[in-house]
Amino acid sequence: MRTTSTFKEHTAFIGTYAAALLGCGATCVRLEKNIGRIASAYGIEVEMTIMPRHIHLFMRDKSSGTSESAVIEPRKMPISFRCNTLLSRLSWEIADGQIEFSGAGAALQRAVSQPPRSKELVTFMVCCASASFCRLFGGDLAAMGVLMLSTCAGFMLRCHLLERKVDIRAVMFLCALVSSVLGATDMLFSIGSTPEIALGTSVLYLVPGIPFLNAFSDVINRHYICAFSRFMDAVVLTCCLSAGLCTGLLVMNAGMFR
């Protein structure tokens, strides 16, 4: 029979795992599956209530009947598909018996403390993605160049402000403002033939796509409270983005304010 201390260690591990998985932007269905998989491997029955700001776990040892309840806050970390993947892989390794409990704790710490990708490379990739979107909407080379410039400025500002823990809503507003002002370069200096496309696509990189997708995933899996919370988060960010864009258009005397 398992000792109480081991059971407590297992439940503490599951709690830390759940906090990390919710913090890195996993959907509710992934949380349920991964936590269920790990708990099952350790001979634990788990019931969970996933709320937007915390997870309530009730765990019961199948062999001894000992139970424990925990309310966990999600770990504060940026959305990361890489961390998400590593944590999912860890759950399978535990379920398949490929990793001991002691090793699992170390693997969990490694997964959540992955060094961030090169900032310069990410900025460049985001600029390329924005320019591609511009081309997709029919923008010419001048519009693509201007868009790369505006995205680079906005994205650098975004990274800088987020590193300094500035509120995400203020960050979205300021980045949208800067990107829209620089996105209006074509219009201001009469460069190229598609200045309105450069302006319109200048804030696309700020659209909170992952929260929207996660919200719909949660709706499909009937986690309505979480879905609504994620959706509202995304809507608020989109409103801040729109406010920044409108201010930029107003200042530049462009678009609908012309």
Binding site: A153, V178, L182, L188, M252, N253
Partner: peptide, 23 residues
């Protein structure tokens, strides 16, 4: 100088300075 141009110069100037410092 018009307001849009002034504002654009302000934002663009700040961006160029930051970029130069970083490089």
């Amino acid at each position: 100088m018009s307001t849009p141009l002034l504002f654009w110069l302000l934002v663009f100037g700040a961006f160029v300075i930051v970029l130069a410092l970083r490089l």
